[in-house]
Amino acid sequence: MKTLIRIFRRERAIVDAVTENLAISVRGLRKAYGRTVAVDGLDLAIPRGEVFALLGPNGAGKTTTVEILEGFRRADGGEVRVLGTDPRNATPAWRSRVGIVLQSTGEFEELTVAEVVHHFARYYAGADDPDKVIDRVGLTEKRDARAEKLSGGQKRRLDVALGIIGRPELLFLDEPTTGFDPEARREFWGLIRDLAAAGTTILLTTHYLDEAEALADRVGVIARGRMVALATPAELGDRRNAMATVSWQGPNGPESERTNAPTAVVAALAERFGGEVPGLTVTRPTLEDVYLAMIDKNAISKEEAA
């Protein structure tokens, strides 16, 4: 019996050593609601300090996965480690290392920004200075305004303030910039970059591909409960080597050509036009194009399977 325990401990120690540098480690994650399988054998490893964007259409298993990682739902199977702990055994000590920005709740209507942030700071032993955090999310001017008077974007920034008040090592952001105007989004991205630069690991879900591209070190695409692609934004779907599209203004209207050798095409065009090619552009598929193609492909293979 003692030997068994010793072996078990040694195994455990090896596993821990491997996962030590991982903020999130998921193997073979499964979750079903009745007969609907939401997550179907998902694997994921996110090293500490990484900004990871999780993409996927609604109903792909994104929210379920994130909620299991956050300790809000229990997995049916697989192994999950978040900061070295299985989130189903979340303790207050673990909670204080994890920041969560859920989709907006708008619950604080009658309370002011300062009241709410100062109150939440009391929940954490290592809380940041509330006024500093209010400033950081750009709500200093609104600190004495009631939450119900804030705009959608400002409410969201209050949510973020509550997510980072405990100075988390790992931050979950669920569609953080929905409802932001372009300027507010840029400002918000700056905030996320600052947090990342300070070493915070960030798991972000978003529907905005430009957001994933601007912020994430890596992106993962979930479809039908599985991770179907995992790469840096530049390399997703072999984007770097994808066929380029050369477009120009021909004598009879716009023309374009898909090619693996855009330089040669442009050179040929230059010769044909004898100099400047009117309306010349050379494009590779955007992250959004790659993503949509990926989702589409998965939808088709699903129909085939059915």
Partner: peptide
Amino acid sequence: MSTVVDQPVARAARRRP
């Protein structure tokens, strides 16, 4: 960026109420 692995922010000794 992904190579930056900061140690967890040092936690203040202050206890949570």
